[in-house]
Simulated assay, not measured.
Amino acid sequence: MDASAIVAAIAAAITLAALYFTRRQVKTAEEQTAIQRGMYKDAAQPYVWADIRPHAQHASFMMLILKNEGPTVATDVSLKINPGLPSEWARNEDHEKFASMRCFDSLPPGRMMQWNLGLPQDLLPSPDTPGNGDGRFKISISFRGPNGTKTTLSYSINLSEYRWVAKTTPGTPMTIAKSVDDATKTLSKAINNVAIQLSE
Rank of each mutant, 00 (worst) to 15 (best):
N82L: 13
F104W: 14
I65Y: 04
A90M: 13
S188A: 12
Q114V: 14
D94C: 02
L117Q: 10
S154E: 10
T152N: 04
K178S: 08
P86I: 02
K150V: 08
T184N: 07
L107H: 03
M62Y: 11
G38H: 08
W89P: 04
R111V: 14
E161M: 12
A12T: 11
I176K: 05
L119S: 13
D122R: 14
A18E: 01
S100P: 01
A29G: 04
T129S: 08
S140H: 00
S199E: 13
L124C: 10
M63E: 15
H95R: 06
I141H: 02
E96W: 05
R102M: 10
W115Q: 01
T184R: 11
P71V: 07
P86L: 03
Q57T: 06
A18R: 03
C103T: 14
L187Y: 06
S60R: 14
E96L: 11
D2Y: 00
T75V: 11
A177C: 08
S156P: 00
K178G: 00
F143D: 01
T149I: 07
K150P: 02
P127M: 05
P71T: 04
S106W: 02
Q114Y: 06
I14Q: 13
D122N: 15
G145A: 06
N158V: 03
A29V: 05
T149P: 00
P170W: 08
V77P: 02
P173D: 10
Y155A: 08
A3C: 09
P46E: 03
Q121M: 09
P54I: 00
G70M: 08
G148F: 05
A5I: 11
A50F: 07
P108L: 05
A44R: 10
T75E: 02
T72P: 03
I35N: 06
W115I: 00
A18D: 02
E31W: 08
W89M: 14
S199I: 07
A50L: 10
I10R: 13
R102K: 12
S126K: 11
A59S: 15
Q121A: 12
V165G: 00
E200W: 11
L19R: 05
D51G: 06
D181K: 12
T186V: 02
A56H: 11
S154H: 03
K67L: 09
A44Y: 03
S126P: 02
E200K: 15
T149K: 12
A99H: 04
A90Q: 09
D105Y: 03
E30P: 00
S156K: 12
L85F: 05
I157F: 10
A29S: 11
E69Y: 12
W164T: 15
S140W: 01
G110K: 13
E161R: 07
S160R: 13
